[in-house]
Design a protein around this nucleic acid. Structure first.
Lengths: 352, 352
DNA sequence: ATTGAAAATGTAAGCGCTTACACTAAGGGA
DNA sequence: TCCCTTAGTGTAAGCGCTTACATTTTCAAT
């Protein structure tokens, strides 16, 4: 009776390692090794175990695995916003690369607010993230100390600096913007305005602004001539800032923007004012999002290899988590995409 | 020596429940109850425990919690893409609501590919997701059975149907598109083209197309007169499809699009062909993304309350997970936003 | 054959938490 | 006064896995 009963009893719950071990006729340790480090098990045994896994449709219990291995196989990422395509794209690649390495991605967003970011960092660490992807380097020291104390490896992306508190995989925002500014100057522009993102807690925005101002100074121009406008990355803000910039007595002939979103806003602002781009005013962006090629005229901007960055960041971070390396920073190249929105200065003689 | 040594020894690792229990002078069970169900502990004790938690900076170990509670406090969401702002926005609200209920969100994307979605579902379940948010209802039966067998509650969003295999929080795509089509017809259009998203595995796209065709028929028009074009949701595809649609002998006077992305593409296509919107041709979208208000002319489209949907979906799903309810579906309202891209039919007499 | 090192596998001790159950103390009704 | 209920707390048994260490097997060198 008992046998029949036990044979007929339906599965009460998911099969465990022990069930697999039993059907394969080995110990749980061997099954575990088959799954985590197959090379340590001889082929014949491995085959036997694998068929048992197949037969039972065994899936390891996540919680138990985490508990015993003291790792969650989870990487956390905190990005400013999901609304900007650049992060969406980079994260996509990041996620794919993590997946290939057996890790899952946990994302949250900070809305560009440092205090929210800090809370999210703590939340992800509490949730057992094995490593963290952060954007940029500008944040308070205590949070770096917290990370160090908890021994959670972290990596910064979208901004490369050689000597940050944590390693970074990214590009040099300052140099890129410097080069783009030089391009604008080479087109004859002397009165150049800037619509920057919010600098506070955002080193990418800061470096871009600095790079632009450095280039002005290097070309003998007064960086303070047209004060930059700082505004959150929203299309409408770009339009508003553009209007403000053009309202001055001697408006700029070129307006450089902290990113493509602001630049598209600026183009809309120009349209509203009845200004033609680039005949009346040139506009540049940064990031080379899809929209940059679609607006008319197409946007002159800086192309950033978001996907490559995501992929490399994933590999670097997993290495830090697994091999306990301190992390290898990498600087990625950017490309200036000169397109229709940048034209020659409309009144090259009236200034300088 | 020993005492001094042990006193000076730095924390080897994070404090555990037991450490808290010891400092508070209670049992681990009491500490656990303080954290998870405070009402079951008398106030004096609770205060003592809470100070100990504070003093030790105690954070529960995630893995242990998961293992013992047999829940991960994680909700998985599988969306078609992060590239479309509508999902980004809805998910944002979803995540905030989950956070308020003590859950974390795990996101992955399927790139609109059913087999990828299925793999992601299995991956999230294996990872212990307590519940799943899915988009729409069109998927193979076995995956629903898998979910049922594993007892993982799932909820569909962005598409409301009253009698699906899983409950849904969303809107009626068919009715919304029907209403929009009626609006187009009321503007005098009789030759109406459609650029639809890919129908396969996407009930939202399917319902929108059906709603449009139903409206045509209800108005005595031939739904097959201009065959709809089916193409993935990409701006460039919208432009290409538009060009194809206008290349016929008797091109449509209005082109309705499966979503705003395609519609923006169609507007770009029109610009390339030298067609004015809406004087030469009207264009409509669906979703009311930010871009819809920014293009010129602004896009006539269907507004969907993405944030509200995300919030409601989170509450419904957590209820399913915690209270073991079978899940309450909800239908959300949509609004037709009539804007510049829809105008009167340019040649109202030459047809019908 | 014999031996010993190396390879393969087994044994079993946790990992830190939740929770069923046990126990104690405090009232309330008889 | 005694018993029974109930609220508050403690005890301890897992949860399913990984891995240090122990044991067995294999096999090359003698």
């Amino acid at each position: 009776m008992k046998e029949i009963n036990s044979r007929m009893e339906p599965r009460k719950s998911a099969p465990t390692l022990e069930d697999v071990a039993k059907t394969a006729g080995v110990s749980t340790a061997t099954v575990s090794r088959c799954l985590n480090d197959p090379d340590r098990v001889v082929e014949a045994t491995r085959n036997r175990v694998m068929s048992a896994v197949q037969a039972l449709q065994y899936t390891p219990n996540f919680g138990a695995r985490v508990m015993a291995a003291k790792r969650t196989f989870t990487i956390g990422a905190i990005i400013p916003t999901m609304d900007n395509a650049i992060f969406a794209r980079g994260l996509q690649a990041f996620q794919e690369a993590l997946h290939a390495r057996g890790y899952t991605l946990l994302v949250s967003s900070s809305a560009y607010r440092p205090e929210v970011e800090e809370e999210q960092i703590r939340a992800l660490v509490a949730r057992g993230a094995d490593g963290l992807l952060l954007i940029g380097h500008d944040r308070d020291v205590p949070i770096y100390e917290y990370l160090a104390q908890r021994k959670v490896p972290a990596l910064a992306a979208w901004s490369y600096i050689p000597d940050g508190r944590i390693p970074s995989i990214g590009f040099d925002n300052r140099t890129a913007m410097y080069a783009l500014t030089q391009e604008v100057i080479d087109h004859g522009h002397r009165r150049i305005g800037m619509i920057s993102g919010v600098i506070q807690g955002n080193d990418r925005a800061r470096f871009r602004l600095e790079g632009m101002q450095d280039a002005l100074v290097a070309n003998g121009l007064d960086a303070a001539m047209i004060p930059p406008i700082e505004t959150p990355y929203e299309i409408e803000n770009g339009a508003a800032a553009f209007a403000k910039l053009m309202a001055g007595a001697e408006p700029p002939t070129a307006v450089m923007c902290g990113n493509d979103v602001l630049a598209v806003g600026a183009m809309i602002g120009a349209r509203r004012l009845g200004l033609r781009v680039p005949q009346d005013v040139s506009i540049t962006g940064f990031d080379d999002i899809e929209l940059a090629r679609i607006v008319s005229p197409a946007l002159t901007t800086v192309h950033v290899p978001h996907r490559e960055m995501g992929r490399k960041a994933a590999d670097a971070l997993v290495d830090m988590v697994e091999k306990k390396t301190s992390g290898q920073s990498a600087k990625l190249g950017t490309t200036i995409m000169t397109r229709g929105s940048l034209g020659p200065c409309p009144r090259p003689d009236g200034q300088g």
